[in-house]
Nucleic acid binder design. Structure first.
Ligand SMILES: [Zn+2]
Ligand SMILES: [Zn+2]
Ligand SMILES: [Zn+2]
Ligand SMILES: [Zn+2]
Lengths: 128, 128
DNA sequence: AAATGCAATGTTATAACATAACAAAAATCC
DNA sequence: GGATTTTTGTTATGTTATAACATTGCATTT
């Protein structure tokens, strides 16, 4: 296979695919669907995913081993995910209260927060 | 191998081992160490771990794929883990502010929280 | 006591998630 | 153009977790 590049990077492809799907997907789900577009191995997907995380364009949902597009600019807010165990819907929220709570915990413990992972499992509005 | 039972269950063995180690361990790390005590397969470890989680005796740290003993009774508080990326130390805190923040987020979004996963990566007091 | 039912455990295999190691190609710099 | 660095491809392997089914121990019924 040729390595010739068109102007769409692997990261672009992965990002656009995640955006289109509107829900968290595993690396291997992405791989399966993008195989037709010249992405042939897990490594390629993981490199693209890590790049997108570094650029703040996507997040990894640790408790799902899945990846999803970021909803927008965070500024000083902390992203927090609500994950419905019934319908599978995942929503990102940017919450200032929780950011403040972390800050006050930090002051108590002397811990310098860097990458907070907040994933709340439960049931969404529609599924209760 | 005989299935004859002594009075120590697998769950007991796993719990005591985690307690002794004082840090999160992966299922396979536990398996390796407990192989000498008659635990021979991943399934056995995972069954014990899941039982201990159900009973509230241990937690899974999702972002580490590792398991650790609970620090005590939670009551209505939410467990939140500070994970030092330098020394690897993991500490559990029971924080009422964060519990309240979740509650107020729930009120806004109509989401019924069930199992909140809060894991903060960063640097501890000693490592800054 | 023998048969039955059932929960816990053992066993084997495999699925699902992620990275290491190195080769080849492309981009960059002189 | 040739050397160097960075990115990408490729193959293999490591790591985490579960599925599927057999066996054992023990309580209950016959
Ligand atoms: Zn985001
Ligand atoms: Zn739902
Ligand atoms: Zn706890
Ligand atoms: Zn530290």
């Amino acid at each position: 296979m040729s390595l010739k590049r068109n102007n769409e990077t692997h990261a672009n492809k992965v990002y656009n695919f995640l955006k289109k799907k509107k829900k968290p997907l595993s690396a291997y789900e992405i791989l399966k669907e993008l195989a037709s577009e010249g992405i042939s191995a897990p490594t390629t997907i993981y490199r693209a995913l890590n790049k997108l995380v570094s650029n703040g364009l996507i997040h990894k949902i640790e408790s799902l081993n899945a990846w999803t597009v970021c909803c927008g600019n965070h500024e000083n807010k902390v992203p927090i995910f609500e994950i419905c165990k019934t319908c599978g819907n995942v929503t990102e929220h940017l919450d200032i209260n929780i950011a403040n709570s972390i800050k006050s915990l930090s002051e108590k413990t002397g811990f310098l927060a860097d990458n907070p992972i907040f994933e709340i499992h439960g049931q969404c509005n529609n599924c209760i």
